[in-house]
Each structure stands twice: as C-alpha cells, then as structure tokens.
Amino acid sequence: MNIMLISVVVLGMIGIFSAAILYFAAQKFKVEEDPRIDEIEAVLPGANCGGCGFPGCRGFADACVASLEGKLCPVGGNAVMEKVATILGVEVSLADPMVAVVKCQGSCNNRKKTNSYDGAKSCAIASMLYAGETGCSFGCFGLGDCVEACQFDAIKIGEDGLPIVDDEKCTACGACVKACPKNVIELRKKGPKSRRIYVGCINKDKGAITRKACSVGCIGCMKCQKECTFGAITVENNCAYIDFTKCRLCRKCVAVCPTKAIVEVNFPPRKVVVEQAENKE
C-alpha cells in the first residue's frame, strides 16, 4: 500500500513538474505568426514544387500575406488564388491557365539516329558531352530529366522517345522547363478547350541542314509568317515561333507548313472548318 502511494505521488509530481516546464517554455518561446498564413497554406496544393518562385507552399503563403501583387500559384491556378484572395479579403487578377509544351517532334521515325548514347541516363550529362544521338543538335534527348523533375506525374517519355505532357495533370509549375538542358519545353497558354497551336521545333540550323536531320523540323521557310494575319508568327534564326498571346487559333499556318512542324492540339478534324476558336482570347 505504502509503495503504491509513494509511486503515485512521485509520478504525479514528476508529471506536474514537467507540465509546468512545458507550459512556460511554450509561453516563452512562442512565435507570433499571422494566423492567415496557416489558412492560406491549407488551401494551397502543398506540393512544395517551388513553381511560384518561393521556397515551398509556406513561403508562398507568407509572401501572399505581405502582398498579393503579382503572386500566382501556377499549380492551383485561379481557383486557389481566389480562395487565397478571399482569406486576405482582397481582389485578385485572374491569370490564363498555362501548360507545358514539348517543342520537338523528332521521334525515331522523324529524326534518324546517327549514333547511340551509352552514358548515364540524364539529359544534363548527355548535353554536356555532345549534341545528341541525331543530326539535330537542338532537339530532345529523350533521357527524361523532365520526367524526373515533374512532381505531378504529368510528363512521361512516350513510345517514340519523346516526352508527352498530360494536360490534366500538368500544373505549369515550370520544373520541367528548368530541368531541360536543351530548352525544348515551354510554358504556353492552355487555350480554350485546351486547343493550342505551336511550332514543334527549335532547330536554328539552316533549312537544308534541318531537313536532312529531321523530317518534321522547322526550316525557316517563312510561309507561316506570311500566312498569319495576326502577326503572331516570327521567324528568327531559321526557326518560327508563335506568340500565344497573339495567336487566334485559325490554323492557317498549320495548313501551309511544308514540313508539318506546326502542331495543333485538341482541334476537331480538319474538314469541319469552324471559326469557333476565335470567340475567346
């Protein structure tokens, strides 16, 4: 009986003493933080991808509390930014949703191999070594640095050896753009109904050299530039570029391109020429 009593008392006293220490420590070392930071962090995607330019989601939430000016969570997009704005009680300007686009169509059939790579499976390492497995020194290596960089499982190397972006999963965080040593990937406007047009080539060699290396390369023939009535296409260094802020998705450039270097995505079949794409920016 006595022993039991002593144990209960002693343990109880240790417990009270420890609780007191914990209480005072919690009071003394308390960090004052804006409670809205926690609220914002809760609505953010929580992937800590760094696509916004801040160190993780909490860093972004912290910055949002200071000022919402020009902040965008590329992953959550407008939906999340609206929630953040509601928490902060301010208006937010909505941004266009973006998506990563692979500007190379040099699959094994289109772009013949001239040698075969046997080094470490990394585009960064291969690009330090040489120009690549084909005659094109600009195109995709297909070794998957972008796949590794993607935190959302939105990019995969397809059967033809080129990366394929999953529109649904892609959050335009830009990690793959940074990871690609060849700068093949670009963030472009997703477009209405995910319809978009882009030049699937970044080869800056002269037309003849490009043509020899790849059957779907841009040869800088200028036909698309002449065809475009919106001034959206520029040809520089033998390679065309479509400015997605000016493009109205009329698809005329796609029709004139002699090498089929211009890619259209998610359009209905060609015969039904409906200018429905024009009604939205």
Partner: peptide, 8 residues
C-alpha cells in the same frame, strides 16, 4: 551501317 556508340 553500325551506329557509333557515344558515352562520357
């Protein structure tokens, strides 16, 4: 006909 191998 054979492709040359390349590695670092």
């Amino acid at each position: 006909d054979k492709l040359l191998k390349v590695s670092p």
